[in-house]
């Protein structure tokens, strides 16, 4: 579904990603793991068009999207929930969800999708008229995810969805992510919390200082002795 071919990204002179290649299979849940600063967020930013790769290609459903503008990539079916949630603080919950439908061409499905988001996260329905900034961290994460699926993506990318959340809330959020995946949306997770990500993902890719060092099914990786290095960020 999504394929990176030898993608190199550099900020200024120093490369952050070195020739990274991997493929995200359709329908599955995959996880990109690695220590802080390994290049996970940069990978997502490159996929969604926020940074331009210096070299390499990014293909989505067979189409080369490497130099597309972010809004065109979103319209093509990739939604990116950024680290830190980045919800619109001055908009209500409902307005946050509404603006996210901008790239859609089918206006008719919006209502049913709204119902779907509210079913997934009943708490958002309770708080639909509240302004974004008044939500708790967990609610903000739910809204960020809900907002992303309002664009009807076929691929949903989540950056550090568990960061800074209470353990119970993490469970709730990850259950929802699982549910979204079950409904047929391909999921790509970025997590520092490696064990959490690997519990959910069928496929895993490990980044170490900008280089893809491990990739395969999660079960294979779990038994790989090199996984410890990924944890430690060595």
């Amino acid at each position: 579904m999504l394929e990176l071919r030898q993608v190199t990204v550099a900020y200024g002179a120093s490369p952050v990603l070195h020739s990274v290649s991997f493929e995200v299979p359709s329908g599955a849940c995959s996880a990109l793991i690695g220590a802080n600063g390994a290049g996970k967020t940069t990978t997502l930013r490159a996929i969604s068009g926020l940074v331009r790769p210096r070299q390499g290609q990014i293909l989505f459903e067979g189409q080369d999207i490497t130099n597309w503008a972010p809004e065109r990539i979103t319209a093509a079916g990739i939604s990116h929930v950024p680290e830190g949630r980045r919800i619109f603080a001055g908009l209500t919950v409902l307005e946050n969800l509404e603006v996210a439908t901008t790239p859609r061409k089918d206006r008719s499905g919006v209502k049913s999708d709204l119902v779907q988001v509210y079913t997934l996260f009943p708490r958002l329905h309770e708080r639909r008229t509240q302004l974004g900034w008044s939500l708790s961290g967990g609610e903000q994460q739910m809204l960020a995810i809900g907002r992303a699926i309002m664009a009807r993506p076929r691929l949903l990318m989540l950056d550090e969805a568990s960061l800074g959340l209470a353990p119970l809330v993490v469970v709730e959020v990850y259950k929802a992510i699982q549910e979204i995946n079950r409904q047929g949306i391909t999921v790509l997770l970025v997590e520092q919390n490696v064990s959490l990500a690997m519990r959910l993902a069928q496929w895993s890719y490990a980044l170490q200082r900008g280089v893809l060092t491990l990739s395969g099914t999660t079960n294979d990786l779990k038994n790989d002795p090199r996984l410890r290095e990924v944890y430690l960020g060595a």
């Binding site: 900020y11 200024g12 950024p82 680290e83 830190g84």
Partner: peptide, 10 residues
Amino acid sequence: ELATKFNVPQ
């Protein structure tokens, strides 16, 4: 803070 996180470290 978020903006700097998202941007190029200088």
